[in-house]
Design a protein around this nucleic acid. Sequence first.
DNA 1: GTATTATCCCGACAATGTCGGAGTAATCAG
DNA 2: CTGATTACTCCGACATTGTCGGGATAATAC
Lengths: 107, 107
Amino acid sequence: MISFLGEFEQLLLLAIIRCGDEAYGAALQRELEQVRRGVHLGAVYTTLLRLESKGLVASRVGDPTAERGGRRKKFYRILPAGSRQLERSLAALRTMTAGLPRPLEAP
Amino acid sequence: MISFLGEFEQLLLLAIIRCGDEAYGAALQRELEQVRRGVHLGAVYTTLLRLESKGLVASRVGDPTAERGGRRKKFYRILPAGSRQLERSLAALRTMTAGLPRPLEAP
DNA sequence: GTATTATCCCGACAATGTCGGAGTAATCAG
DNA sequence: CTGATTACTCCGACATTGTCGGGATAATAC
């Protein structure tokens, strides 16, 4: 049970970092869309749930906004354990791509 | 149905590139071990099979060697479609990591 | 021939990824 | 207040990818 991060989990963690304190479901979807077409919102939430149950991210429920409708947003932030795992995954790719000719360079 | 590469598939494709024309099961396992502990040989072969059925890699059976025992080795090489998919996955990570502090260390 | 070795392959299960749609809580209009 | 409308979150089922153990195969050594 050598747990590891899937690719979508990696991208989602990165999206959380990039969104800062505006990291809720729909915003994360928009962020991911820049990089991958057709990201389903359900996929985002399912993955967030699993990341939270693994202790890699934490969430808090936001206050009601002045906007028309909608449930309260749930904001996510990455936890230290999440950063560590993410960095480990990226390091693996960096090692494996080191010395290879572009365009196969490391992230 | 827009199939994407899993993380292990990415690493395996990179290992195939790195091994050049010595890319057979056990050698790929050794290459992957540098980056991930406890890589099971079965995982390598299963993934190779699936990559081949997706048309991302091709294989050829090698000649008998002068070594003690063993079945003939099966050597793999990456196909253009494989390179393209791999590059696309890495590009996504590159985009998402752009502008972030390099060691994503725990706070 | 039999023993020994290195390699490849299969089948079953676990974890991750995807999808559609139901459920919930907020504002707006009357 | 009530109902319509809206923006989100969540659930359940299935597809794909990852893991594991063990067995089959084919080569050399004796």
